[in-house]
Amino acid sequence: MSPSRAQEAVTVRTFAQRFSATRRGARLARMLAVHQLDRWGHPYGSPASETVALVVAELAANAVLHGRVPGRDFELRLHRESDHVRVEVSDTHPDHPKLPAPDPTAEGGRGLLLVEAAATRWGTSPRTGPGKTVWAECATHAAPSLCR
């Protein structure tokens, strides 16, 4: 390549990072996801950023609380597409999550209900090795924020 030709920009479409299966790891996953969204052109506080932050927070919290296997981390992957971001959280626990029956008196257990409300689609899939991946697709086009 000649020095006079401009170098083409490389478009990063995937972010992947492993985190300790702790509350601190879950918090860091959310913070880095929002930072990556900002780098992809969805600024802090935008509807896409808020939706992805909510989904990552809930899926990472579930990986730490329900998917934790001692000595094993969880992984966050973000895949940027033209109209959405796919969030994937993988852990090594074999049980796949299910939507709970609504219980207005329960102090917790609403994380997947929030994911279902915020995401356009979500589900689970097996992963290589032990465990599973819980994924959700979040729209990135202009839409009302779910976090107001």
Rank of each mutant, 00 (worst) to 15 (best):
G25S: 06
G25E: 05
G25Y: 07
A26K: 05
A26D: 06
A26M: 05
L28A: 13
R30C: 11
R30Y: 07
L32V: 15
L32E: 15
A33N: 08
V34H: 05
V34N: 01
V34Y: 04
H35G: 13
Q36P: 01
L37G: 00
D38R: 09
W40A: 02
W40N: 02
G41N: 06
G41H: 01
G41M: 02
G41T: 08
G41W: 08
H42A: 07
P43Y: 00
P43G: 06
P43C: 03
Y44L: 15
Y44G: 10
G45A: 11
S46T: 09
A48Y: 10
A48F: 12
S49E: 02
E50K: 15
V52Q: 04
V52E: 01
V52H: 03
V52N: 01
V55I: 06
V55N: 03
V56W: 03
V56F: 03
A57S: 15
A57R: 14
E58K: 06
L59D: 06
A60C: 07
A60N: 06
A60L: 07
A63L: 07
V64C: 00
H66F: 14
H66N: 09
H66L: 08
G67S: 05
R68I: 06
V69G: 12
V69N: 11
V69D: 11
V69W: 11
V69H: 10
P70Q: 13
P70L: 10
G71P: 13
R72S: 14
D73L: 12
